[in-house]
Design a protein around this nucleic acid. Structure first.
Lengths: 266, 266
DNA sequence: ACCTGAACACCGTTCAAGT
DNA sequence: ACCTGAACACCGTTCAAGT
């Protein structure tokens, strides 16, 4: 079961419940003590809003929620009929896009909060893309759906302007700064989706993958695979440590940017 | 409808059909002329095999097939009951893993066929990762499922040994060659999954994304977004041109590897 | 105006029945 | 031994019915 606390229900001034007692996802044991008959199922009528639905969806897809985004799960989380969501979002994709927007805004906010001065371009870029990755990976099931999508979010445009600015100030011509920005952001989103896609596989499937790796490395003859054998320690360290592989790829990419800057200056 | 030609049915010596006339996916108009009553549905009994199932699945997921991998679609393609596949694969994941193996083998073969001498390490690596990407993107619906998975395929181990060897010969210490290999391969698989994930979205959804982009760029005031405005031409060129963005990221990454090699040499 | 619930066309998977 | 087909618990989505 993927039951999680629903106290964040309370902060929404638009999330109201007609019938006293609220949705049956609140309370738990306390709610049972209050009920008169066993499982009194009064026909409750919940009032939804875009905000309360987005909140519930984000909770559902969080690492603790650990669930795939589904109308039935969403309905249960909201204490409403699953199809009620269609009164606020045209279809599932519309919902996903709204959620993507929320994550982009959160990622940009987090980046700004932790960013060093723009002159330290490398550290500044690292902070920015790590923020994107961390916000997305807090909801793996959503990251898989959101990573590939574009929204018309103004805050994203601001962020692109900033990134290009940092690269330009570091010494790249505008066009090169723009294409480097694009490559960097897509590299980040791609790696993030890649990691999320593995994380949302069920335990058993992930375990199967791990076993395949272990078997492979146990049976490789050192004579025919001398280099794999020599670097087995490092390869094992990196196995399923996607964060470290991402950092490695990112560092190498930024070394490439540095070389590009040198060339542009000289 | 996603009907595709099924002539490759004929090349499988293990794909046999009991009842003359074969599966109703063959022939088309010609088959109608042969039939006596309208849509004579004799209870045909098809003999399947792992190979014939894998063939059908690959056809289904090909860019021309344009379909998501589904038991019912697979059954239709095979002219058999969908659940018959369970006699040859434990579950869907087992099937996906077998298909992943096929693609890995094909990717390595393609890489070897087109590879320049190992001494040209940069071109050699480019050829190798482009082969992976092109083989995977020929079946976008499968690429999405396969990119994150590991199989115990021996040919993959050989390939890893080769890649580490090329990087080592280029001047990197073994451990650095191993981690760079890992970063490069994951960068490629991640970008490939990223592209495939967008490609399998239905037309309408892709169009919605394109519209979001167009709207965003039409409404950005040049005064507040001078750099985006200045590089609009380049940004538009790169929009939804994932291949070019991948090549850009790849080139920058390899520049970084080159810098690493210089440093390692002294 | 907005939530409910039956209904539909799909999913993957299981299992008894056929051959 | 292996394919068939009914059945089940899920998906997203539509629509008439309730309040």
């Amino acid at each position: 079961m993927t039951q999680i606390e629903t106290d964040s229900h309370m902060d929404g001034r638009d999330t109201t419940v007609d019938t006293p007692g609220g949705a049956d996802t609140t309370g738990g044991a306390a709610g049972d003590a209050k009920g008169t008959a066993k499982a009194t199922r009064r026909p409750r009528r919940v009032t939804l809003s875009r905000e309360s639905i987005l909140d519930a969806a984000l909770r559902l897809c969080s690492r603790e929620g650990g669930a795939v985004l589904t109308f039935s799960r969403l309905g249960k989380e909201l204490g409403a009929d699953p199809t009620a969501v269609y009164r606020h979002f045209r279809d599932k994709d519309d919902l996903v896009l709204a959620l993507t927007d929320v994550m982009i805004v959160e990622a940009v906010q987090r980046a700004r909060a932790g960013a060093p001065p723009r002159q330290q371009w490398r550290e500044w870029l690292l902070t920015t893309v790590r923020s994107i990755r961390s916000v997305y990976l807090e909801r793996p099931a959503l990251a898989v759906l959101a990573a590939t999508r574009t929204t018309a979010s103004p805050v994203e445009s601001e962020s692109v302007e900033e990134i290009i600015g940092v690269l330009h100030d570091a010494g790249l011509p505008v066009a090169q700064a723009a294409e480097s920005c694009r490559a960097l952001v897509d590299l980040t989103l791609a790696f993030t989706q890649y990691t999320a896609a593995f994380q949302i596989l069920d335990e058993e499937t992930q375990a199967k993958d791990d076993r395949a790796w272990a078997v492979k490395y146990a049976t490789l003859p050192a004579a025919r695979f001398p280099l794999v054998h020599a670097s087995a320690a490092r390869l094992t360290e990196l196995f399923r440590n996607d964060d470290e592989v991402f950092e490695l790829a990112l560092a190498t990419f930024l070394d490439g940017i540095e070389a590009k800057i040198q060339r542009a200056r000289g």
